[in-house]
Design a protein around this nucleic acid. Structure first.
Length: 679
DNA sequence: GGGTCACCAGTTTTT
DNA sequence: CTGGTGACCC
C-alpha cells in the first residue's frame, strides 16, 4: 500500500476525496500521476470494487504506465477488473459488444489516416472534384472536426462563405455510407458512435453508469467535445468524476481540444471540489519563476503558481545567435560543457522546437560532432507502406467487406489482375449493388473477364478463405502469420521493387517487426485472436520493440530532438528551447490566422517546464527560409521573463570575416577525420 | 508499371 | 531550399 503521510496536504486531500466531482488542477511536475494512482488505491481500500473504477487517458503509454503503477500499489489481484484505457480503446471495447445496434457487424475494421484518405480520394474522383492528397486531407480534416463536435452527416450545415464546406457537405454523407458498407469505422467514429449508442439506448446508458461509478480522466485539458459528452453521459448517475489536468498545458486546440472543458468544469458539474497542486518536484526555482512569469500573461486561466522548496539553481541561459547554424553550434557547445561540468549523459539533454523542420540544423550538427541523438516524431511505424500492405491482408481476412484494403492488396503482390480488370469488377459491383468480395467470388459472371484474370481472382479468394480458417486457430497465430508472409513472397516483392538493397532490407525487417509484435501480443493476451491483434495495432498500441517507439528511443543514451508538442509529460535535466523568435514561437499562423497567441504561450510554458536543472533559450537574428535569408525578431515571450533570471550570451560575432570562419570549420573537419582514423 | 521531371507548398498530431 | 506529388512517357 501507500503512505498518506508521504503526500503533501493538497495531494492528500485529492487522494482521500471519494464522492462527487473533483477538479484537480495539477501544475507541471506536481506529482499528478502519483495522486491518480494513490486515489485509485484509496478507493479500493475503502471498498470500491475494482470493476466500478474507470481511468481514461489519451495515450497508450499513459494508460500502460498508470496500469502498471496501480498494480504496484494495490497488487495485481485488487486491480483486476479495473478499466484503465485510452478513450479510443474504451470505446472499441463498448462498440465490440454493441455496435450491431448501429447496423455494423462485430468484426468491423478501424480505418486510420491512410485508409481514410484513400476512401476520400475515391469519393472525390467519383464526383469529379479535385482529387489531390491535399484536397482529400482538407476534406478529411473537416469531417474529423465535425465528428469531434458530434455533427452527424445529416446535420452538417455548409457555410455559403466557405467553398470547402459545400464539398464536405457532399462528401461527408457518402464517406459515412461507404464506411458502413465496408463495415468500417474511423477513429472519430469510435467516440462519436459510442456517444450515439449511450444517448439512444437507455439500457446501455444505465448499464455503463452502473458499471463505471468512479471515473478518473487524465489530461482533461485536452478533451474535445465528444469526449466531454461521453464523460458527461457516464457520470450522469453516480457522478464521481475526477478530472486531472492543467489548463496552462492545453496545446491541442488544433485537433479539437477545447480548453473551456477544464475552465468550465465547476460550472458543468455543480458541487465540484477544486484542488490545486502547485508544489513542483521537477524544476529549480529560476526555471519555475520564468515559467510562472510567462504564463501569467494569459488572461483566461485558472490562477495558480508553481513553487518549489528547492534552490533557485543556475540562471537561464539565453543565446541570441547569428543564424540557424550558429544556434545549432551553440547548443553543441553547451552540450559539451554541461556534459563535462555536470557529469551528465547525452540522454540528459533535449532540444525542443516548434516545428519539425527545425530539427534539421541540429541533426546535421549532431552528426558532424558524432553525438548520438534520437529524433522523435516523423513517420509512424504503421504508416509505412510495407506494414500497411501486410496489415491490409490481415484486415481483409478479418473483414472482407473492407474494400479500401481489398483494393490495396487485390493485385499486390502482382497476381495478374490488372487495372482494367479491377475497373470492370468495381463497375459490376456498383451496377449490381453487390460487394466487391461477393463479385470476386462469382467473377465469371463479370463480362469481358478473361480466363486468366478470373482464375487469378479465384485463387485470391481461396487464399483469403484459407487464411480465414487458419487464423481461427488461436494457438497458431504466429505460425500462420509467418506462413502468410512466406506464401505471399512479400520479401521477394520488396527486393524486386526497391533498387537500393539497404532500403529494401530495412523494409523487410520492418515487416518482420510485425511478427515480433504478434508474438508479444500472444505472450500478453490470455485469449488471443486475429481480431484482438488487429485492434491493438489499429489503436497504435504498438508493442513492437521497434526503433521508432518513443519509449525505447528514450532509453538510449542519446540527445533527444523533438517538437514542443511531443515533449509534454516528459522531463530532462537540460533543455534547449530553440527558435525563440516571432514567427516560430509564437508561430506566424497563430499571429495572422488563428489569433491564438495564448496557445503558443502555453506551448512555451510546456517547453520551459520540461527542464529540471538547466534551461537554455535560443533564437537567431536571421534565418534561411525557403532559400532566402530572413531577418528575425526575438519572441515576445522572452520579454515576459524577468531579466534577472536570464544570463545572456551572444552567439558568433556578426560580420565574422569569412576566411577565419572557413579556417575554423576546416580545422574542425580535420579533427573529426583524425578521430575517425584513431578509432 | 516504373522512372523522370516539373511544380507546389511549407505548424503542432494521441488514437 | 526541401520533400512530396502528379503528369507524362517509355
Amino acid at each position: 500500500m501507500f503512505d498518506l503521510n508521504s503526500l503533501n496536504p493538497q495531494q492528500r486531500k485529492a487522494v482521500t476525496h471519494k464522492k462527487g466531482p473533483l477538479l484537480l488542477l495539477a501544475g507541471a511536475g506536481s506529482g499528478k500521476t502519483r495522486v491518480i494512482t494513490c486515489r485509485i488505491a484509496q478507493l479500493r481500500q475503502q471498498g470500491v470494487p475494482a470493476e466500478q473504477i474507470l481511468a481514461v487517458t489519451f495515450t497508450n503509454k499513459a494508460a500502460r504506465e498508470m496500469a502498471a503503477r496501480v498494480q504496484e500499489v494495490v497488487g495485481r489481484k485488487a486491480a483486476k477488473g479495473m478499466v484503465i484505457a485510452t478513450f479510443h480503446s474504451l470505446c472499441v471495447g463498448i462498440l465490440k459488444v454493441h455496435i450491431d445496434r448501429l447496423g455494423f457487424k462485430k468484426n468491423f475494421s478501424i480505418y486510420a489516416a491512410a485508409d481514410q484518405q484513400r476512401l476520400i480520394r475515391d469519393l472525390l474522383r467519383g464526383i469529379g472534384a479535385e482529387n489531390s492528397s491535399k484536397a482529400a486531407d482538407q476534406v478529411l480534416w473537416r469531417i474529423s472536426s465535425a465528428k469531434n463536435h458530434l455533427i452527424f452527416p445529416d446535420n452538417y450545415q455548409p457555410n455559403d462563405r466557405d467553398p470547402l464546406s459545400s464539398l464536405v457537405a457532399t462528401i461527408y454523407p457518402r464517406y459515412q455510407k461507404s464506411l458502413k458498407a465496408f463495415n468500417a469505422v474511423d477513429f472519430d467514429d469510435l467516440l462519436m458512435f459510442t456517444v450515439q449508442l449511450l444517448e439512444q439506448h437507455v439500457d446501455l446508458h444505465k448499464h455503463y453508469c452502473e458499471r463505471f461509478q468512479y471515473q478518473m480522466v487524465d489530461e482533461y485539458q485536452d478533451t474535445n467535445p465528444v469526449q466531454y459528452r461521453l464523460l458527461k453521459l457516464l457520470a450522469s448517475t453516480h457522478g464521481n468524476l475526477c478530472v486531472v489536468g492543467d489548463d496552462d498545458q492545453s496545446i491541442y486546440a488544433f485537433r479539437g481540444a477545447d480548453i473551456a472543458n477544464i475552465l468550465d468544469f465547476e460550472h458543468d458539474f455543480p458541487g465540484t471540489k477544486v484542488i490545486k497542486l502547485e508544489q513542483n518536484y521537477r524544476s529549480s526555482g529560476n526555471i519555475l519563476a520564468a515559467a510562472n512569469a510567462v504564463i501569467k500573461n494569459n488572461q483566461k486561466r485558472k490562477e495558480k503558481a508553481l513553487w518549489t522548496d528547492r534552490d533557485a539553481g543556475s540562471r537561464i541561459g539565453y543565446f541570441l545567435c547569428q543564424d540557424g547554424e550558429d544556434e545549432a553550434r551553440q547548443v553543441m557547445e553547451q552540450i559539451h560543457t554541461e556534459k563535462y561540468r555536470g557529469q551528465l549523459n547525452y540522454g540528459d539533454f533535449a532540444i525542443l522546437y516548434r516545428t519539425n523542420s527545425q530539427s534539421r540544423a541540429f541533426e546535421e550538427q549532431l552528426r558532424y560532432e558524432n553525438i548520438p541523438y534520437v529524433l522523435i516524431g516523423g513517420q509512424q511505424f504503421f504508416d509505412r507502406k510495407e506494414i500497411k500492405d501486410v496489415v491490409a491482408y490481415l484486415k481483409i481476412i478479418q473483414n472482407p467487406a473492407d474494400e479500401v484494403n481489398l483494393l490495396r492488396i487485390l493485385n499486390y503482390p502482382k497476381r495478374g489482375i490488372g487495372e482494367g480488370s479491377i475497373d470492370r469488377i468495381i463497375r459490376y459491383s456498383a451496377d449490381k449493388n453487390r460487394s466487391l468480395w461477393k463479385v470476386l467470388q462469382q467473377v465469371d459472371q463479370v463480362a469481358e473477364m478473361n480466363d486468366r484474370t478470373a482464375a487469378a481472382c479465384g485463387s485470391f479468394v481461396d487464399l483469403i478463405k484459407h487464411y480465414q480458417k487458419r487464423f481461427k486457430q488461436p494457438l497458431w497465430l504466429l505460425e500462420t502469420l509467418q506462413e502468410l508472409f512466406t506464401e505471399l513472397k512479400l520479401a521477394k516483392e520488396i527486393y524486386r521493387q526497391e533498387k537500393d538493397p539497404q532500403v529494401a532490407q530495412r523494409r523487410v525487417q520492418n515487416q518482420e517487426e510485425l511478427l515480433n509484435s504478434m508474438s508479444i501480443y500472444l505472450e500478453r493476451t490470455p485469449q488471443p485472436t486475429l481480431a484482438g491483434f488487429l485492434e491493438r495495432i489499429s489503436l497504435f498500441d504498438d508493442d513492437a520493440p521497434g526503433k521508432n517507439d518513443k519509449e525505447s528511443k528514450l532509453a538510449l543514451d542519446a540527445v533527444t530532438l523533438m517538437s514542443l508538442h511531443s515533449s509534454k509529460g516528459l522531463e530532462f535535466p537540460v533543455v534547449f528551447l530553440t527558435g525563440l523568435e516571432e514567427g516560430f514561437l509564437p508561430h506566424k499562423k497563430s499571429i495572422y490566422e488563428t489569433f491564438d497567441i495564448d496557445e503558443e504561450r502555453r506551448l512555451c510554458y510546456v517547453g520551459i517546464t520540461r527542464a529540471q536543472k538547466q534551461l537554455f533559450l535560443l533564437g537567431a537574428r536571421q534565418r534561411r527560409k525557403y532559400g532566402k535569408l530572413e531577418q528575425r525578431e526575438p519572441s515576445r515571450f522572452l520579454s515576459e521573463i524577468p531579466e534577472g533570471l536570464l544570463h545572456e550570451f551572444e552567439g558568433e560575432q556578426p560580420g565574422n570575416n569569412a576566411p577565419e570562419d572557413e579556417a575554423a570549420s576546416a580545422s574542425h573537419f580535420f579533427d573529426n577525420i583524425n578521430q575517425m582514423f584513431e578509432d
